[in-house]
Design a protein around this nucleic acid. Structure first.
Length: 599
RNA sequence: CGGGGCGUAGCGCAGCCUGGUAGCGCACCUGCCUUGGGCGCAGGGGGUCGUAGGUUCAAAUCCUAUCGCCCCGACCA
């Protein structure tokens, strides 16, 4: 029997001053966690019980589709060099040296290690498909750990990896994970949504993120209330209302107009009595990418989009296969546009051909030194009679038509969706929320199997690289998300499946023998029926015990008090505060109707 | 890495400007009391004031450096 009086549950009346988000404050106050350093936390009794329950659910569902391994956390440098990520991971990776001076790192994720096993052992298509998973501690030297358990430097992750003979088979492994993840998060009692995510510049074809809405989240997700459209900001798009085009003036050719001192879009629009929607915004970047020699390569990228839109830099990075963007400086603007900041525009640019998109090989960069990658946002396709900068101080152009009056390297969706725009599926209004990512499934492709040399023979005897997928779940984030989702000023409540205890039995007055023994009896009964119960038998005033019970996350409380003389106790549901008088003799039956048996 | 803030008892804070005995609330220990929402009374324990230098007769307080933590930004396969 778990007696509170003998347990270590250090609850706090006040939250630590440096806690900001609800889950952080409450998990500390409830005695689940204590901080050791920035982004490093100890899990105490209650916190550990919960994460163990979460892991049990994850394990049960993963065992239905895969096999659990246990892999090292310390990795030799060589494996990470083979995949190229020893360099790519940069400062985010914890590195150390052993006594012989050999380089090692703490694993941030385990693609390399799993692929290493695969290449040494897998020989034939007959051994595929394989799904291997593990639940392991990961280390990331975050530049800025924050928000309690949300962004930390050490955390537990369930990660799995699939090896398939071809893309069709990968689809099956991917779908298995998708379904397993839904079962896991359902069982953990989370309200989550699945969003399409961008798969990054490093290859990979499909990716979904499992997100929980919360103000503490760091990711933005776009979703439709009407249909089930949901996407990551970096992937989201929207249907735009038709724009009323300006009338052409003169012969319809671009026409120079004097706009003295009106550089900004808003000024131009006001000066010309037009809407920003009729203006072309020009955003000029230098795209950056680390070169093979370790030096940063740069190339000019210019985006044209509707005056009231803004560039989504992640979309753009993916499009031009770059790792970073910086705004062009004045001299660079003058070099490529031959015009002054504020009045730059598309006409007169030397446009790189479509084949040059995403091309970084310096040998293929020869040609006109003024050549730039020009990206036209799709929202400008087919537009007519627009206003744009003339590349001349204090002048703009009228009657400009993308595609006719200027060329571009590529037309693509590179703008950010704005809340209230129309859903691309059903046309209803889109909303944008912050959310926390609790799971991510990802079609990796051949990146690791190719670079690390995993090969199997296919049914024709031909040597091929297996195609891979990688899939992660943040264990602590499930807890954090659950707390974020269900809390008030007094504390939080967890879904019974992951709460440290499903029921707390409060003996309101321990000096009353009848009350004390009844509370013990009830606890014993409920335990006997398979429920997870803790008995609060502390010699405290009832108020103290009620406050604690409200704080620490148990979904149900049984108050054993004066009504024992009538054979009754109260059952209080934490989430609703609803209190029900229940006959002591019927208490087990009552909970059987409320709670599913423990798995 | 840029900007800001904070390090004084387990937690929350005051004291610092204007140098001179280290304080308050909660928590903790003992006793009494109380027992349906952090109850009351009495007594008590606990802090090299983040660390290291410096100035001074004297430093929590002034100066310098350094470490740590938090927030905003950058970053986040």
């Amino acid at each position: 029997m778990h007696r509170w009086s003998e347990l270590f549950i250090p609850t706090l009346r006040e939250a630590p001053a440096d806690a900001e988000v609800a889950s952080h404050k409450l998990l500390v106050r409830a005695g689940y966690i204590r901080q050791l350093g920035a982004g490093i936390y100890s899990f105490l009794f209650l916190g550990n019980r919960t994460t163990q329950k979460i892991m049990k659910i994850v394990r049960q569902e993963m065992d239905k589709i895969g096999q659990e391994f246990y892999l090292p956390a310390i990795h030799p440098r060589e494996v990470w060099e083979e995949s190229g990520r020893w360099t790519v991971m940069g400062e985010n990776m914890f590195r150390l040296k052993d006594r012989k001076g050999a380089d090692l790192c703490l694993g941030m994720t385990h693609e390399e290690i799993m692929t290493d096993i695969a290449r040494k052992e897998l020989r034939s298509y007959k051994q595929l498909p394989q799904i291997w998973y593990q639940i392991q501690t990961k280390f990331r030297d975050e530049p800025r750990p924050k928000s309690g358990l949300l962004r930390v430097r050490q955390f537990i992750m369930k990660d799995s990896y699939s090896f398939d003979i071809d893309a069709t088979e990968l689809d099956i492994s991917y779908l298995k994970h998708y379904d397993a993840y839904c079962r896991i998060f359902d069982r953990c009692g989370l309200k989550y949504m699945v969003v399409e995510a961008h798969s990054g510049a490093m290859g990979g074809s499909q990716s979904h993120e499992f997100m929980v809405r919360t103000p503490a989240g760091e990711d933005l997700i776009v979703s439709c209330e009407k249909c089930n459209y949901a996407a990551n900001m970096e992937k989201a798009t929207s249907k735009l209302a038709a724009i009323e085009e300006l009338k052409p003036e003169g012969d319809g050719q671009p026409l120079l107009i004097h706009t003295p001192g009106k550089g900004a879009i808003a000024d131009v629009a006001e000066f010309l009595k037009i809407s920003a929607k009729q203006d072309i915004k020009t955003v000029a970047y230098m795209a950056q990418k680390p070169g093979d020699d370790g030096k940063t390569q740069e190339q000019p990228v210019v985006v044209f989009l509707r005056g009231d839109h803004s560039v989504n830099e992640t979309k753009l990075l993916t499009l031009v296969k770059a790792s970073n963007l910086r705004p062009m400086q004045t001299e660079e603007l003058e070099k490529y546009f031959q015009g002054p900041a504020g009045f730059i525009g598309p006409i007169g640019l030397v446009v790189k051909p479509k084949e040059a998109l995403g091309e970084w090989d310096p040998k293929k960069q020869a040609g006109d030194p003024r050549a730039v990658t020009v990206v036209l946002d799709e929202a400008l396709s087919g537009r007519t009679n627009m206003i744009c900068g003339a590349n001349e101080l204090d002048y703009h152009l009228k009657n400009v038509m993308p595609g006719k009056d200027f060329q571009y390297t590529v037309a693509s969706d590179v703008r950010s969706v704005v809340a209230g725009e129309d859903c691309p599926n059903c046309g209803a209004a889109l909303r944008i929320d912050t959310a926390v990512e609790i799971g991510h499934i990802f079609k990796l492709g051949y990146k690791y199997s190719e670079s690390m040399g995993a090969r199997v023979l296919d049914r024709h005897g031909k040597e091929v690289a297996p195609i891979m997928g990688s899939y992660g779940i943040g264990i602590e984030r499930i807890l954090t998300a659950a707390v974020e989702q269900s809390n008030d000023e007094n504390g939080f409540w967890l879904p019974p499946s992951i709460a440290p205890f499903e029921v707390v039995v409060v003996a309101t007055n321990t000096s009353d023998d009848k009350i004390r023994t009844t509370a013990e009896d009830i606890t014993r009964q409920l335990e006997g029926a398979g429920f997870d119960v803790v008995l609060d038998d502390r010699d405290e005033r009832p108020g103290v015990k009620f406050k604690d019970a409200d704080l620490v996350g148990m979904p149900f409380r049984v108050n054993v008090g004066k009504k024992v003389t009538e054979g009754m106790v109260e059952v209080v549901q934490r989430s609703t505060r609803q209190s029900t008088d229940v006959k002591i003799s019927a208490i087990t039956e009552y909970f059987k109707g409320l709670l599913p048996p423990l798995g």
